[in-house]
Every structure is written in C-alpha cells, then in structure tokens.
Design a protein around this nucleic acid. Structure first.
Lengths: 206, 206, 206, 206
DNA sequence: GATGAATGAGCCTTCATTCAT
DNA sequence: TATGAATGAAGGCTCATTCAT
C-alpha cells in the first residue's frame, strides 16, 4: 500500500508541477491539481500543509541545492589565493558554472517554476537571493583587490548591485528564453566575458 | 457637479494606483478600489470598461510616451553618421537617457506598476518590448560596424538578446530598487560603461 | 430637428426590435439598444418610460390591431344567421383569416416578438388571450347549435379550451416555424379542416 | 451526518424546484435558493456543478423517463400488424397514455418545469423533441397506410408538423392549465378523438 | 427633451481551507 | 490517513433605472 501511496504522491507532484508551470502559483487551482492527480484536496492538505507547501515540496529541494552549489563556487573561489584567483578563475569558474547549468537543466521544470511561477510564495524573490550572495562575495573580492570607488560605500554597493543584477537576470534568461542546454553554456561563457570586461571597466582593477 | 465628478475620478485613479502597486494587477480587488475611492464598481465600469481599462488609464499614457522617447533616442542615434556615432554617442545618449530617467521618476508610480504590477495586462511584457527594440537597433548598428561573429546568425541574435537583457533588467532595477533619481542617473552612466565595455569585449569591434 | 428626432426614434425602434428578437425581452439589454440606436438610455426612458414601454411601443399597435381583426371576424360570424353560418362559414372565414395572415406577415417581426420574445411583459400570454376569445365565441356558437355534452359545463369548457389551444398553437406555429406566407395560408386551410373535423367528431353536432 | 447531508440535499432540491417554478430557470437566483435551502452557493456548486446542473438534477431523470415511455409507446404501436393497429390502437394507446399521464402527475413539478421553466437550459425545446418523435412515427405510419398528399413531400411534412404541434401543445396544456389528473385523462381521450378525426379528414385515409 | 455617469443590487462562479466521517 | 462536501468570502461584471446637468 505504501508504494501505491508513493505513486499517488508522485502523480500529484507531477501534475502540480505542470499546473504551476502553466498558471503560476497564484492562478493554479488546488482542486484541479487534486482531481488531475487522482487525489483530493484534503489529502494534499494532510501531506503538504497548504498550497504553498505543495509548491515548496516541488521547488525547495532544487532551490536549496542550487543555492548551495552557488555558494560553494563562491566560497571556493574566495578561498583561492590572489594568484590562483587570477590564474584559475576562468577555468575553475567555467567548470563549476557548467555543473550548475547541468543541474538547472536536469530540473528544468523546477527551475522555471522558481524563476517564473513563484509569485506569492517565499521564493518569489529567488533571483534576488542569488544576486545578494554574488554581491556579498563581490564585495569580499573588491576588498581583497582594492578599488578606487571604494571610498563612497553606498555608491559602490549600488553599482555592484546593478552590475550583479545585470549579470544574473541575463544568466537566468537562458532558462526563461527556453534555450538549449549546450547553447546556454556557450551563451553564458560569452556573458561572463561581457560581465568581466564590464566589471573591469567600471572598477578599473587590473 | 463636474468638479465633484472630476474629484471622484481622480480619487479613484489615486486609490487604484496604490492598490495596484501594493498587490499587483491580478490580486487587486475592484471592490476595494471602489470602496476606498468612494464609488461603486458599477461606476468604475462605466468609466473604464473593466479592470484592465482602469489599469490602462493609469499606465498607458506613460508607457506610450516612454516607449516613444526610447524609440526616438534609438532612431536619432541610428541616423548619425558613423563618425558622429563615435564622437557624440556618449554625450548624446547620456543626455537623452537622462531625460528618460527624469520622465520615469516624474511618473514613478506608473513606472513601477508597469515594471512590477502589470502581470495579467497587455503590458505584462513591457520590459521585453523595450529589449526587443534595443535588439533591433543593436543589430542595425552591428550591420553598420561589421563583426566577426555575424557568420552564425542564431548565435549572434541570442548573444545580443542576452546582453540586452542584462542591460535593461539592470537599467530598470533603479526603479524596482527604489533608488533616488540623481543616484539612478549616476548608476546608469556607470552601467553604460559596463555595457559598452562588455559589448566591445564580446564583439571585438573597435 | 423634429425629423432628426423622428429618425432617431425610428432607429431605436428598429434596433430594439432586432435585439428583442435575438435575445427575448428579458435578456435584451437597454444599453446595447441605446448604443446601437445612437441614443442614450436616458433618452429611451423619457420617450418610452421603461424597458417594457419600449417593447410595447414596438409590439402593442400590432397586437391591438391583430386582436381587433380577430374579434371582428368572430363577431361577424357570430352575427350570421344559423343558415348563413353553415353556408358561408368556410368561404367567409377563409377569406378573413387570409387577411389576418397577410397582416401578420406584413409585421412579421412584431408577430414573432409577441409569440416568442414577450416573456416578462404584459404580452407574455398573448396566445392565451387569443385562445380565450376563440373560446368565448365557440361557447356562443355551441349555445346556438346545442350539443350533448353541454350538461357538464366544466367538462365542456375544458374540452373547448383544449381544442382551441390545439388549433391556435398550431396556427401560430407557421410564424414560429418560419414558413413562407403563401404556404402558411395553405397549411392553415388544412389545419381548419383538421380542426373542423375534430370539432365535429367531439361535439357530434351536424 | 450522512442523514443531515441528505436532508440538506433534499431541502435544496425542494427549494430550487419551487424557485425555478416561480421564476423560470433564468430569473431564478442561485443565492436565493442557497439561502432558503440553508446552504451556500459554494455548496450547490460542489454538488451540482452549476446552475443548470441543479436544474437538471431536478428535471433530467423525469424527462428521460418520460421520453422513454413515449418512445416505447410509439415503437410498440409501430410494430403492431396493420390489422392490430386498427383494432387495438384505441385501447392500447389509451392505456399507455394513461400511464404516461400518471407519471407526469406523479412528477407534476418537474413536468411543469420542463414545459414552462426550462428556457436557458438544454431542455428549452423539450416539447419540440416530443413533437419530432411523434412526427417521425407518423411518417412511418403514413408510409404504411399510403396517402394522397404524399406526392408533395414538403407539404406533407409541414402538415404533419402542424397537426402534431396542435396535438401536443394541447396535450401538455393539461399540465400548464393545472387540470386535475383524472380530468386530464378524460380530456386527453377526447383530444385523441379530435386528433384522429382531424387526421383522417386531412389525409382521407380510412 | 437629451444626456450619460452614478447607483446599488444583483448575477454566476471560483477559491483555499476546514473537518466530520 | 484519506475523503470530499461544506464553508464563506471574494471575484469580476451587468443591469434597469435615476437624476443633475
């Protein structure tokens, strides 16, 4: 019987994913999900607590893992020596980011949900969370490297925020724009160059 | 009586703006707007046709004007000689964009509505429209200047799309992030440098 | 100016007729009629009093005239001597009814409105009014002729009601069923024979 | 609790029947029904799907059964030998029709709803359906018996349509006119004679 | 007399959530 | 634990009618 229930559970998840993708979190109807999934709303409530609980069951593991991967990349890079940062940055980063992209495309539905269908849930600002982390590590990096604008902290912070926003909105655009995985990787490599060049131009750090 | 009616009309617009800003188009309730505005839903329907009509009454004039300003900037720049494009680009663009930013901050509410609260209306892809226009003119520019990647058209288009996305998502972030107008102008100038440097790095056109 | 207004008046009538025909009295919308007719609801109210007033303006003259024609036929026939009733009935009635049918087809729209679209107005039982009159004269006729069933008055009345209903529902079916005028006349002649034969069979009066 | 729920269910049906009878399907208000029935509109929607669903829950079983009874009568009669049709027609038909009338009076409310209050539902042409079936079998009968008018098919069809209309509109008039059951049976017997005599007069088939 | 915005009650329908079974 | 009917509030929208201009 446990297996059957597992089956129902999975069916509900599948159906819910597709409903949330189609309509977004808010417009999606729990009842529709229950019906299509072969269960009842009551059952979904006992299992998942509420509508957002169901959404999170789908999206949270992915989101957590993705964030963890991202933080690990940042952390590792941060712990490189300055010399290594220079020399291995491209290669290391490139490789790690490819891993992340692989992971995103392995969970494409969850990823789109997170980026496009999460309004009304605690993940509605997921991209911002990503951006915040990048900002944090960018500031650490700048501290290490030193930079001329640093005198005006607010200015610096805002600039970093804007540039990081530029980078990540575009980064996630490969998902939103339904690009193929291998192409996405190429585009993001180009995007990295764009970002790097832009970054250096702005901060004049060589 | 005309004045009173004017008054009601304006009150409704004001209230609606604030409701839409707070909840977005979809979650906002016509009934709430009517009540807070001292009218009835019926009255809103006679005036504005329907819920989206009310939203558009607030947002459309601004959106139309903003798009027109943007297109004019692009068109003017496009009609410069290559030489002028080089020499005057920064100055001209900078000035025109400042005008646009002024206009956006003069209509801050409408602008935020357009960028953050328009899901469910015909403006839900407003940023994308902006991006499309920029892409179009970028392609015209690249045709003029020539570039090495042009051989692979799909690749070129996607790259331009990504970079443009980067630029504009970040551009509008000054609004979304509630930055002050004068600061916003500074940030966007920096962002322009970022974008320019990135663009040149990617397209290696000097 | 009077003429212009006449024009508007007529336009409204025309439009209203078509709206009422399409949707019936209840579902038709005054506002739609006003708009399509190039006026305003207010104007319709000053002219016609209310929604039903507009309906009646279209339908009442026709209804009154039709009823009058019908009553005249009945009254004339009633005033024939018994001998004449026998001899001239067919010819006279046939001719008069043809006149009535002509009149109905000359005002086909009004007639359909009366028969099919008048629910919610004082004419919603128009056919019943017709039937009542016929019943009245049938009873007068039976009194003259004498008949065996007359002993049980209630029974007689109900039978007459049913037979009359049969006749007139079928009579008006030529309109409802969109038959051509000349065909309608033929059908109604046949229907008269049907009715006559049935009547005689029921009342065994020779 | 099941009993209570049964109770609510039945209460709603009862109330709805009376509301629909009073106002017809279209004018009847779900809210009123819900309130008078001691429930909520939401509950009605879970049970019946929508307004028409509620109406059909009341009326459809009856309509289906009635139509079935009618078709069975027609079919049986159709399968009689010509000789039997003559000899047993009156008796057989009379008996079967009495059964049908019994059934109609057992479900008087549903029957009135069907005949008078179903505009806006899929049963709005119920009488026409009845008439169509009778027409069909009448044509079969005429084919068997042969008739002089048959040469002109359109004419024949229209005449049959009219006569059948006459018969059934009058037939159902016993319900609409609130006659008592036993009287209704008598009237309908008379009506049968009327129809038979009329039919023979028209088709001159002896 | 014409106007048409305002009224305000009403419509059907949908929803996430609860809870007795 | 699963069920699914009940809840009750809320949704957008339409309407005939009124009335100040």
């Amino acid at each position: 019987m446990a297996k059957q229930i597992e089956g129902v559970y999975e069916k509900v998840i599948t159906v819910a994913k597709s409903e949330f993708l189609q309509n977004g979190f808010q417009r999606a109807s729990l009842r529709t999900i229950a019906t299509k999934g072969g269960t009842t709303t009551g059952s979904i409530y006992t299992r998942f607590g509420d509508k957002e609980g169901l959404f999170l069951a789908i999206v949270e593991p992915f989101a957590t893992k993705l964030l963890a991967m991202f933080i690990e990349i940042q952390e590792n890079f941060h712990n490189f020596s300055r010399k290594d940062q220079r020399e291995q940055m491209c290669e290391y980063t490139s490789h790690s980011v490819d891993n992340m992209i692989d992971f995103m495309y392995e969970h494409l539905g969850e990823c789109k949900l997170l980026l496009e269908g999460s309004q009304g849930t605690k993940f509605e600002n997921f991209t911002d969370d990503f951006i915040s982390i990048e900002e944090e590590y960018t500031h650490k990096y700048i501290e290490t490297v030193g930079c001329e604008i640093c005198e005006n902290l607010k200015f610096l912070k805002d600039i970093v925020h804007m540039i990081t926003t530029a980078y990540f909105e575009s980064f996630f655009e490969v998902i939103r724009h339904n690009m193929e995985k291998e192409e996405a990787k190429k585009y993001i490599k180009v995007l990295s160059n764009y970002h790097l060049a832009g970054f250096e131009a702005v901060f004049q750090c060589t």
